[in-house]
């Protein structure tokens, strides 16, 4: 099987799930004949019809509300946000209806909310955000942020088959930039929700990260290996629920931890992970925990400003050297 891009992997997973289960359907803006703003559902309407590839008005609360309503009748909707920044328009439906549905009244909501997030593409303040933490704070949701085509494919399948509302943050910087051959020779496989992945093994220091920053961490690890610093990279893959065991395990192994994310620093996931390390692996630490994240600002538009905003390979290299020398 030829290598597929991150975007093609998502398309393939969605397509195969719609083939496998007629109760899976897509709903969103411009997803039908146009195929979606990023062409994730390109050609789907030809195969599955307008009944299962539903174009909607520009009304995110209606999209999420209708998807939830359909899920109550046993269907498995996959709702697209054109950009994940626009998920804010459906905030109440997500945090007050979907997230609390099972806890409050025992109604499972088997649906997926998916779309492109992340910066590095000069999209500006409303087309570049990483809003995962708005939802990580809300019990009842699952939040997925894949970094590779294989994980995007396997996690999408798990998300669709899961009986809970899953928010699936695709990273638009990765859409057509990375490619890999899917395992299982093109056969169906899933990646479990809530389980991290060791993206690189190392003994000296752990970088705990997810989504596009996994690739920044791997590039830094390569540079640091030349200096004799062996970096382990833990790709969280799912940020809610978090894989506490994997976080504890890598820190107990290396005794030094950098937490890296593209989301802004304050209130970002790094604070939560630092607390988990404190609870699970304090006695193993040989250096303070380091957080690397985006600036506490909106995502700026102009390329030099956005470059200054985003975490970079050199930030990881610098922090790794500092912790190694502690």
């Amino acid at each position: 099987m030829p290598a597929v891009t991150y975007l093609e992997a998502i398309r393939l997973a969605l397509w195969e799930e719609m083939e496998r289960d007629p109760n899976v359907f897509c709903i969103g803006e411009d997803i039908g004949i146009y195929g979606g703003a990023f062409k994730v559902t390109d050609g789907f309407i030809d195969r599955f019809g307008a009944e299962r590839v539903i174009d909607t008005p520009i009304a995110e609360s209606a999209i999420v509300g209708a998807a939830y309503g359909a899920s109550l009748t046993g269907l498995r909707p996959v709702a697209e946000f054109q950009f994940m920044d626009f998920i804010a328009c459906a905030f109440n439906q997500i945090v007050n209806v979907l997230a609390k549905s099972h806890y409050r009244w025992g109604a499972p909501a088997p649906l997926v909310l998916r779309g492109p997030s992340g910066g590095g593409v000069h999209g500006g303040p409303f087309h570049s955000q990483n809003p995962e933490m708005w939802f990580v704070k809300t019990p009842g949701l699952k939040v997925v942020c894949p970094a590779t085509p294989a994980d995007a494919y396997g996690l999408m399948k798990s998300a669709i088959r899961d009986n809970n509302p899953v928010i699936f943050f695709e990273h638009k910087f990765l859409y057509r930039r990375i490619k890999e051959e899917l395992p299982n020779g093109g056969g169906d496989f899933t990646v479990p929700l809530g389980r991290a992945r060791q993206a690189r093994a190392g003994r000296d220091l752990s970088v705990i990260t997810y989504a596009a920053m996994v690739h920044v961490a791997l590039e830094a690890a390569e540079a640091l290996a030349a200096e004799g610093i062996e970096v382990e990279v833990l790709d969280l893959r799912t940020v809610l629920p978090l894989d506490r065991e994997a976080i504890a395990e890598t820190v107990r192994k290396t005794s030094r931890a950098i937490i890296l994310h593209e989301d802004t620093l304050t209130g970002g996931l790094a604070g939560e992970i630092a607390a988990i390390i404190n609870e699970e692996a304090f006695d193993w630490l040989d250096a303070p925990i380091s957080r690397i994240a985006a600036l506490d600002t909106p995502v700026p538009f102009s390329p030099p400003l956005e470059h200054a905003f985003l975490p970079k390979v050199e930030d990881v290299v610098r922090e790794a050297r500092r912790l190694r020398a502690w």
Binding site: R52, S61, I63, G65, A66, G69, A70, L75
Partner: peptide, 25 residues
């Protein structure tokens, strides 16, 4: 019966979605 929530209006797209789910079936 769909459970209401305290925020007003959210049930309207939800009930619409219930009708959509039924029609798909």
């Amino acid at each position: 019966m769909v459970s209401p929530i305290s925020m007003l209006g959210d049930l309207i797209p939800i009930l619409t979605g219930v009708a959509l789910g039924a029609r798909l079936q």
